[in-house]
Design a protein around this nucleic acid. Structure first.
Lengths: 191, 191
DNA sequence: CGAAAATTTGACATGACTCAACTGGAGTGG
DNA sequence: CCACTCCAGTTGAGTCATGTCAAATTTTCG
């Protein structure tokens, strides 16, 4: 567990005592491909750090269509952050795309750790800031780019995970149908 | 200035000494309607806290079309956070929609303050978290809702600012043209 | 191998865009 | 006080990107 913590908080100089304490609040869990590990309608009060694997959060709209908000692979955090950060009822689902090993931490415990260890609060703030800037970039992409442009950028940014995931995962991330994605790919191949 | 700081950091118990220190890093500025207060192509290393007024950040895509990312009114922060948080070149512009009074703070100074006063670091982390969750909500809205639905939700959420802003500001926030917005409104009026 | 799931293809529908013309206020100045 | 201009907003006609529905094909995996 301590090894994993060194990965999460790499760059920080934590004492052995601090690491021991942190080790008590993270629980290692393993999930199989296809599992839905979050689909409550209640507030989400935990998050996961991904050690290994691939997961996604998605939203099911009133018409039943899925929209993927985020993929998470090694060294990413994942949760329903809309619920977690705003203390609202959960809207999102988390699906395990590839067998995954994660560290689960409860909000209550994590908040306590952030208060006790200012270096971690600082580290996490920086992480959330980058997360938020990336989210804004995504909004801009959806607003300003065509489906084809978004797909091309997606392929570049997520080259490493594009193999593991289904086309309908990509389509639902890009905000298009699988049929459109199929046509876009065909068009790109033609040149 | 101290009064303004009490608004920014309301809920925090700051000593007089801390307030004096903070007062040295925030500079009050006033802008007139129509001013463009950010359109550099360099990294953005400052942000604004809005005391009074209304501003927006927008992106101009390669075809010259504007996309509004964020409106900011009283008690909001505004900057090109894509540049500020990711240390990338600026993509965004900030336009003053209504005469505004803001407090400007440099990133260097602000980061120092966050390190010196952990209570502020904590406060700001919580703020960024909510900001990020709202940004994710926006992404979901753009992906899952029709233009009409987005407009209706916008009207509800921003009822207070809808009067001040032009239709083309709203349209560029919703990701549609002014013509489409005009048609949507007509349709809504008909019932 | 065979069934189920995923993807592709075709025909058609539709929401939103583009371009261009028109309307209606808000100022401005003679 | 009217004529003029400018800007925002609206309307119309045609186009285009993407969606829908249904069927065909390919891939996956028990």
């Amino acid at each position: 567990m301590k090894g994993a913590l060194l990965i999460i908080f790499k760059g920080l100089l934590l004492s052995n005592q601090e690491l021991d304490y942190l080790a008590t609040i993270f629980k290692r869990e393993t999930f199989k491909k296809g599992e839905l590990i979050l689909n409550s309608e209640q507030e989400v009060n935990h998050q996961y750090y991904v050690l290994e694997g691939c997961l996604r959060t998605f939203f099911i709209d009133p018409k039943g269509k899925e929209h993927t908000l985020q993929f998470a692979v090694n060294d990413w955090w994942i949760s329903d952050y809309i619920s977690y950060f705003l203390d609202e009822k959960s809207l999102l689902n988390i699906e395990v795309i590839k067998e995954s090993t994660v560290l689960r931490v409860e909000k209550k415990d994590f908040e306590e750790a952030l208060l006790k260890i200012p270096a971690i609060e600082h580290h996490i703030r920086k992480k959330v800031e980058r997360f938020m800037a990336k989210s804004q970039k995504r909004t801009l992409a959806v607003l300003s780019q065509t489906a084809k442009e978004r797909y091309i950028n997606f392929s570049k940014s997520y080259a490493n995970i594009e193999q593991h995931i289904k086309n309908y995962h990509i389509a639902s991330y890009l905000g298009i149908t699988t049929q459109s994605l199929s046509r876009i790919r065909k068009e790109i191949l033609k040149g």
